[in-house]
Amino acid sequence: MDGKKIVLSINGKEITCGLNKTILDVVRENGIQIPTLCDCKNLAPFGACRLCLVEIEGIPKLITACSTIAVKGMKIRTESERIDKSRRFIVELLLSDHPFDCMFCEQAGTCPLQDLAYEYGMKNIRFPGEKRATITDDTNPFIERDNSKCILCGRCVRVCDEIQGVGAIGFIDRGFQTRIGTPFDRNLDCEFCGQCVASCPVGALTAKPSKQKGRIWQTRSVKTICPYCGCGCNLTLHVRDNKIISVTSDPDTLNEGYLCSKGRFGCDYVHHPDRLQYPLIKKDGQFIRSSWEQALTLVAMKFKEIKEQHGNDSLAGLSSAKCTNEENYLFQKFIRAVLGTNNVDHCARL
């Protein structure tokens, strides 16, 4: 920001804020809660969910806070009978076309629609009616879409277009039957980055590998760094019973919460049955299980033997671009200090 400030009022209280901010930003900066469903960090304002409607003195209509820039002297009200009624109306309409299957829904516990329904105590819907059928594209191994739960906030469509630059999905059809889908309803064929899944506020998009693996409150989350390429994306591993059941990323990191298909869906190898479980020693061309002591003793003995017979430089070590700094440090220290050679390298060049 260029340091310029403006003064306006929210709910009768005078507030100073920076230029070119949306009303929603200003309101949230000041700790005032406004419910939203279509608002999403880094995406252009969309104004579809109509939950962030506020009153501005001098404007007869309610205005969406997410899409309106706050200007000097604006008198904003975030709470009033009209606003409250409108919000309840929206939520009630959404629920009138929602499957009410929170007990099976992967999003339960982190679903803002569930929270709003709970908060408003909306058990009875005054205008029940037709509900959209489930149309599921089930052909890829990553992402499942259940249109019956979709609230058409457009976050998936927008993240796919605005951030990922792919545009694999869009709005299809009109009216009540409007839905999100691929052009000509072809099977989803994209980069499978899962940005759409991460941006879906409800249970319309789920990561298939995580289905029925655990509820959010049953997991422990651990922040770490992606094991794949050199971007260094921050991952949050969600762990239940010593298993990674899903991977997300915090928006407040260098990768802004965005991941690629490997980062988001590619941690399963950790639990692969091929994982080596114990040291192996080859005898007559066959690997035999051994103890650590046996294995390390053998290695130490052989290294010493070669060193003594052929000199330090007859030994060499290849370190790993997939191991930690500590491990790489220790590896070269081992090669240099223990084996006594500078024959150490790794696959930086490959």
């Binding site: 060499a316 070590g317 290849l318 370190s319 790993s320 090669i335 084996l339 790794h346 696959c347």
Partner: peptide
């Protein structure tokens, strides 16, 4: 004569 490969 001898090579130690870590994670490569």
């Amino acid at each position: 004569k001898g090579l130690y490969v870590m994670g490569e």
